[in-house]
Simulated scan of single mutants.
Amino acid sequence: MPHLPRPGETVLGEAGAALPGGKGLNQAIAAARDGGTVRFFGCVGADANGALLRETARSAGVDVTGLREVEEPTGLACVCVDAAGHNQIAVSIGANKRASAAQVEAIPPGATLLLQMEVPPAENATLLARGRAVGARLLLNLAPAAAMAPEALRALDLLILNESEAAWLGAQLGQVGDARSLHAALGIGVAVTEGERGVTAVTGEGLLHLPAHRVEVVDTVGAGDAWCGVLAAALDQGLPLEAAMRRANAAGALACTKPGAAPAMPQAAAIDALLGS
């Protein structure tokens, strides 16, 4: 559409396709396409959308044996994209509210867990506690922003947010919403993605800023998910944080060059090509 709707405004736009997506699905596909060995846990409905999401993940190389079918309809998002590629998203959570930490079987020591917030926060907190107990690497994308107990967040190895989510969490904690202040408040690694300005991360080893790649933007939907999924895959394969963030930056940029969410998650060869250019 020419611009994103303001409150009370109806904006006419072009017809769009129904495309597979969802934060967890996008991130799982991004990790698998970058060479990760990925198992995806969540819930879909017994409907055509659920079947589409299951097959989309499976065909990308994701193990979907942990994807459960429930009575609620599959989650659905309405995505508006303006002429500059900026987006506005409304989500009907549907079956996602039935996702449970109990679905995740024994967590192998050294595994990487990547979680996001389109599922019940209490289930995320339970899974983080289990992961910390066995020495897993724990990543949480606090998107969409929702309350998590500070003690649950302090279990993380890395908290990933965009600027609006960082500002929201900073307000909850009485802090400035940036990577440095959130790291100081929580004592964990924090990465804040900053759109066309890149990403800033603060860990116990200090501050790291990486600029964004310059690309022709078609649609920014899914860029953050590409970043998270590829970062998780790279860390899981032994890359140090800076190298993993460089791959994630390239993946996020490439996701902006294609429409949609899951279909826009890049292949490893494309990431390698952008990094080598």
Rank of each mutant, 00 (worst) to 15 (best):
E165V: 02
R214L: 10
T220C: 08
V192K: 00
Q237W: 01
V221A: 15
H213Y: 15
V199I: 15
V221C: 15
G238Y: 04
T193G: 11
V217L: 03
L182Y: 09
G177W: 09
V221I: 14
S181R: 13
I188M: 04
L186G: 02
G174A: 12
V190H: 00
V202C: 11
V215K: 12
A184H: 11
D219P: 07
T193E: 12
G206R: 06
W227A: 04
A226G: 03
C228L: 01
A167Q: 14
A184C: 09
E216T: 15
H183N: 13
A167S: 13
A185E: 10
S181A: 15
A201K: 06
T220Q: 08
H213D: 13
V192E: 01
E165R: 01
L208N: 05
G206E: 09
V190I: 01
E165P: 00
G195T: 09
I188S: 03
L235W: 03
A166E: 01
A226V: 02
G170V: 09
T193F: 11
R197I: 01
E194F: 04
G229N: 00
Q175L: 12
L208C: 14
A232S: 10
H183A: 14
H213R: 14
A201C: 14
L235F: 03
G187P: 11
I188L: 11
A244S: 11
D236T: 10
A201V: 14
V230L: 05
G204P: 12
G174P: 11
E242Q: 15
G229V: 01
L241Q: 08
A167L: 13
R214M: 05
L208W: 05
Q175K: 14
V202D: 02
R180Y: 00
E216K: 14
E196H: 07
A166C: 02
E196I: 04
H209I: 03
G187L: 11
A233L: 07
V218M: 06
L241P: 06
V199Y: 03
A226E: 01
A179E: 06
D236L: 02
